[in-house]
Lab assay of single mutants.
Amino acid sequence: KKYKVVEVKENKDGTVELVVENENGEKKKITLSKEELDKLKAGDTVELK
C-alpha cells in the first residue's frame, strides 16, 4: 500500500514520528530513525507492507 506523509514530528530521542495516510483516508503513525527520514519530507509517498 502507498501512504502519503501528512505530518513529520521530531522526538527528543532522535527518532522521527510520521503520520501517513492512504487513499482511503486511513492514517497510520510510524516511527523512523533520523537516517531513514533523511530522504523523506511532507508530501512524499511511502510504501508500507
Results as ranks from 00 to 15, higher is better:
V8F: 07
K41M: 11
E7C: 15
E17F: 07
K27Q: 13
T31P: 04
K39H: 11
K29S: 14
V16C: 10
N11T: 09
K49L: 09
K27N: 03
A42I: 15
V6L: 11
K29G: 06
K4V: 14
T31Q: 08
E26D: 13
E35F: 07
K41S: 08
K49M: 08
V5C: 10
V46I: 15
V8K: 04
K2D: 08
E23D: 08
V16K: 04
D44A: 07
T31S: 09
E17I: 09
E7W: 05
K28V: 14
K2T: 07
K4R: 08
V20Y: 10
V16F: 11
T15E: 03
D38N: 14
N22A: 14
D13H: 03
L18H: 00
L32T: 09
I30C: 07
G25R: 04
L18I: 11
K2C: 15
L18G: 00
K49Y: 00
E7D: 11
K4C: 15
L18P: 00
T45L: 14
L40F: 14
D13G: 03
V16G: 08
K29N: 12
E10H: 12
D13I: 01
N11G: 07
Y3M: 12
Y3N: 06
K27C: 12
D13S: 02
K12P: 13
G43T: 04
K2S: 05
E7V: 10
E36R: 05
G25C: 07
K28W: 12
L40A: 11
S33H: 13
N22E: 08
V46D: 14
V5D: 01
K29M: 14
E7T: 11
L32W: 08
T15I: 05
N24H: 13
A42K: 08
L37C: 15
D38G: 15
I30G: 01
A42R: 07
V20M: 06
E17Y: 09
V46W: 00
K1G: 13
T31K: 09
K27I: 13
T45D: 15
L32P: 01
L48C: 15
K49W: 00
K29E: 07
Y3W: 09
K28I: 15
K27P: 04
N11H: 12
N11D: 03
K1T: 10
K49E: 15
